[in-house]
């Protein structure tokens, strides 16, 4: 009789994910699913899926889900949470979604300190649409709409969301993590868990930014993509907890 040390959480459906090989989305999905199991909240989680690569995320979680318009996740989550205060509501968003078209929604969800959890996947590129420049694209990074690399004179500089949102009184927990190594994945898990515990404890707006790899649109092998995370992404987007008022 063998014991199971680790396996796919029951809070994920059996449907194989559509993400490209080596993409970070799947790792984050699993961390969320494990968190739902461990906090025993699976029966009351309602997820808000975005527009972007994770548009099909609603198929992968066993919880109830709402999939809405690009950038509006925090507004949709606000509507769900205010109508069902007992639910644990999370919005899952990419960088174009959250830091470009949905900038007003994320900022004001933080301003109102909506008691929701936001998972922000930052891979510095528009994935689903085929590699266009994102608000978080690094200086010099090539994208289909920045074919010579992002030039600050033309396209400005990348935006650091955790640092920006930390200036807002209503944001209560802000952490930036990566999923490039097992160590970082375990740290990411701890932060995601904290962000959901905060919601259970009515702390207020919590967001975890995940620096994720996009081998396909970075035109890199999985190995090279992880190297890019370590040597380029993390220097621009330092990892750590930027705000933790849930601890008080």
């Amino acid at each position: 009789m063998s014991t199971i040390l680790a396996k796919k959480p029951s809070t994920l459906t059996d449907l194989p994910m559509h993400y490209c090989p080596g993409c970070g989305h799947g790792i984050v999905h699993r961390l969320l699913a494990e968190t739902f199991e461990e906090l025993n909240i699976a029966d009351r989680v309602i997820g808000v899926a975005p527009v972007g690569c994770a548009v099909f995320a609603d198929d992968y979680f066993t919880c109830d889900t709402v999939q809405g318009a690009h950038g509006r996740g925090p507004a949709i989550a606000t509507g769900v949470k205010r109508s069902k205060p007992g639910a644990i509501v999370f919005s899952y968003q990419g960088d174009g979604d959250l830091a470009s078209i949905g900038m007003a929604e994320i900022v004001h969800a933080a301003v109102r300190s909506e008691n929701i959890t936001v998972i922000f996947i930052n891979n510095a590129i528009y994935g689903m649409t085929g590699g266009q420049m994102a608000p978080t694209t690094l200086v010099g990074q090539v994208a289909t709409t920045a074919p010579k690399g992002r030039d600050p004179k033309m396209q400005g500089w990348p935006i650091n969301m955790c640092e920006m949102l930390s200036q807002i009184t209503g944001s209560k927990y802000l952490a930036r993590v990566a999923v490039d190594t097992p160590q970082n994945v375990l740290k990411a898990k701890a932060c995601i868990k904290k962000a959901f515990e905060n919601q259970v404890n009515n702390v207020g707006f919590s967001m975890v930014e995940v620096i994720s790899q996009c081998p396909t649109n970075w035109h890199a092998s999985v190995e090279q993509a992880l190297e890019f995370v370590r040597t380029k992404m993390i220097p621009q987007y330092p990892l750590g907890v930027f705000k933790d008022e849930g601890a008080k």
């Binding site: 809405g68 509006r72 507004a75 949709i76 509507g79 769900v80 205010r82 007003a104």
Partner: peptide, 14 residues
């Protein structure tokens, strides 16, 4: 208004 109608989208979903 964009956020308002999307909040309604979320609330109506419940």
């Amino acid at each position: 208004e964009v956020a308002a109608i999307n909040m309604v989208y979320g609330a109506a979903a419940t």
